[in-house]
Write a protein that binds this DNA or RNA. Structure first.
Lengths: 224, 224
DNA sequence: AACAGGTGTTTTATCGGTAAAAGACATCTC
DNA sequence: GAGATGTCTTTTACCGATAAAACACCTGTT
């Protein structure tokens, strides 16, 4: 992802219409669906939401999925779905949208992610460092580095002490590219989020920060 | 994802240690990092966060990444990162954690997603319906259906009117499997979210719902 | 100094996903 | 009613990511 955001769902990000010849619109409506799945295991059918007369927004797809589950299993505690499902669905839609500026620059998200890690830390990193920074496997980092060095965005330097180790840094071109893309990326994201009021954005960021802190600190323990 | 949550990041979900022989711990700490990338393009180094004396939580990794960017580009509007970055990172961690119960049942997330769609809608669906419901490509659905029918979880029935069309429904075994997994899944998710207070969970769900509604309604327009 | 064991990186095999094309069929128009 | 057009599903080719193995090298021990 942009050295700004997150996960790279399912490999490619697609973001186009599901099938070629299929003129069919995704059930929901305007947006080219495609990636990830929804909250409760898929999008919603159609159920739930008729637009209000004035063209006002109806509930989101996750709410509709929850309603479907409630109809099948009344009383089921679907609370977690309303958070986790929405986070996942938002992540899917956001990534798809965010990839647009990156692709214009000829970079995939994971690639930009790697470059961003080098840029923001300010110093050289080893492949292992980059794998941890970008939460990807070492093998994936090796591949990306090969492409990025070939493109002249990253430079390698062998460690003098330990010859197993490699140090990586951005070239001038790499640094310039990141610095050029980042503001565009952030502006785009600002636009994407513009539907939510400023104060609410702050609340949302704070709550997500709290959740993330909990998850980062605790998930290792829960994983059984 | 469980017919409960979201995107299936990078194909497999891994969730294990980055490299085999590497005893190295992910930089952050206990949790087996691996998937997606972080907000601003990777995790945080180490910077930012020392635990407070009492063992209290420090800021999340996204906050640290934002600080790194601010150091490099002072004044940059990193607001969007604090929301989008956290959503992506939360999604990555949650999916990883959520897969545990599913894997015990021998299902991948996309598979459970598909079964869940059949279960909650209550009626038969065509492959095209399922692709839209699960936000995946038709090809992916075809593959999954093949496996799931072979396992006896799903049944196919040709349409009598239109012989191109196939109708799918859960077998008894499929329905029982979904019904057995779902509560376990939800209980697990409840545990994962338990670090956040009840009222705050409600606020979070509401804000995410608002964001998601905006994204679902608007993203198609913005995608340029 | 040889060796056992551990760490950093790369390579290989494989899996799953998408895009695009192909196949099968319905429907609409003339 | 024949042909053109479009829809639904499956197949094919390819790409990217992971896991596991292979390499290369350091380091501590005897």
């Amino acid at each position: 992802m942009t050295p700004t955001e997150g996960p790279s769902p399912t490999g490619s990000d697609a973001g186009q219409a599901p099938q070629p010849g299929t003129g069919a619109e995704p059930v929901a409506r305007g947006w080219a669906a495609d990636d990830k799945a929804t909250a409760a295991g898929g999008a919603v059918e159609d159920a739930s939401g008729e637009d209000l007369p004035g063209g006002v927004r109806r509930g989101d797809t996750v709410a509709a999925v929850v309603r479907q589950w409630q109809a099948v299993h009344p009383g089921l505690d679907t609370g977690p779905m309303e958070i986790i499902g929405r986070i996942n669905r938002c992540a899917a839609l956001l990534q798809q949208a965010e990839d647009a500026p990156l692709r214009r620059a000829g970079l995939s998200r994971p690639e930009f992610d790697l470059l961003g890690a080098l840029r923001r830390t300010g110093h050289e990193l080893t492949p292992g460092d980059l794998a941890r920074e970008t939460f990807s496997s070492g093998a994936a980092v090796t591949k990306r580095l090969k492409q990025l060095t070939e493109r002249g965005l990253v430079e390698r330097r062998g460690d003098t002490r330990d010859r197993r180790v490699v140090h990586l840094r951005l070239t001038d071109a790499g640094r310039d590219l990141v610095d050029a893309i980042l503001p565009v990326q952030l502006a785009y994201e600002t636009a994407v989020l513009s539907g939510v009021d400023g104060p609410e954005q702050g609340e949302l960021a704070a709550l997500l920060g709290e959740l993330l802190s909990q998850l980062e600190g605790r998930l290792g323990v829960l994983r059984a």
